[in-house]
């Protein structure tokens, strides 16, 4: 489904974020990408979303070479991915309801479907009492949950979660990871980028360990070893 083929990413200031990495993610997999802060996890996520382009090598999404894809194709791919960003990337001038509805509007869903699905997702995620609040009026945990609701609402083929538990207490972290597991059990592909040792060790899923932009290990049922 996603393939990194000898991918190197060097930023204009000379920083080597990823150095000649290759791996493949199959449909329905749950894959953990681990590494210290600055190891290159977020860059990897950005390359899948087409937010960054590889300096050399190729990133493929369902056989589409992202380096050569036209903007419309990239938009289409982004709509297939539900992404929970480290910094939430919420729309600050839209309410909780509108933030989630926006994703469905982008997809061109009709109003009846939006009016049915958004309250349902917000209910599941525990934000049904905050529908008219703006992101600035939410706590860190609530923002995180809103970001998750937004990533899930369109039932995307892939969920990418970049440090989704970074601002959560252990109980909420457990809830989020359980939710991701359920999504994966429903047949969706999940990519979890984190540096939370406990979570990774409990999950027992495939782990790709990155350090200084290079893949140190790629193990099925791996553990957090850095």
């Amino acid at each position: 489904m996603i393939k990194f083929d000898n991918v190197t990413k060097i930023f204009p200031d000379g920083t080597v974020a990823l150095d000649n990495i290759s791996f493949e993610i199959k449909k329905g997999e749950f894959i953990c990408v681990v590494g210290k802060s600055g190891a290159g996890k977020t860059t990897l996520v950005h390359l899948i979303l087409g937010l960054e382009l590889a300096t050399s090598g190729n990133v493929y999404f369902e056989d589409v070479k992202l380096n050569d894809a036209d903007p419309l194709k990239i938009q289409e791919i982004r709509r297939k991915i539900g992404c929970i960003h480290q910094d939430y990337k919420l729309l600050p001038k839209k309410t909780v309801y509108e933030n989630v509805a926006y994703i469905m509007q982008v997809e061109g869903k009709d109003n009846a479907e939006i009016e049915k699905e958004v309250p349902r997702v917000l209910d599941v995620i525990g934000l049904k009492d905050k529908v008219n609040n703006f992101p600035s009026e939410l706590s860190g945990g609530e923002k995180q949950r809103l970001a998750i609701a937004r990533a899930l609402v369109n039932h995307p083929e892939i969920i990418i979660a970049d440090e989704p538990t970074g601002n959560l207490d252990p109980y909420n972290s457990y809830e989020v990871i359980s939710l991701l597991q359920k999504i994966n059990q429903a047949g969706r592909t999940v990519i979890l980028a984190t540096h939370d040792r406990e979570i990774i060790n409990k999950l027992g899923k495939r782990v790709i360990t990155i350090e200084k932009g290079e893949i140190l290990r790629d193990e099925q049922a791996g553990r957090f070893i850095i």
């Binding site: 979303l49 937010l51 903007p71 419309l72 938009q75 289409e76 791919i77 982004r78 709509r79 991915i81 992404c83 960003h85 990337k89 919420l90 729309l91 600050p92 001038k93 926006y102 994703i103 509007q105 982008v106 997809e107 937004r150």
Partner: peptide
């Protein structure tokens, strides 16, 4: 003032005209 918002909209796959 909406620069970050525009970038988020792009990230979720909104078309340029949207």
């Amino acid at each position: 003032n909406s620069r970050d918002e525009i970038s988020t909209m792009k990230t979720v796959g909104a078309s340029d005209w949207f």
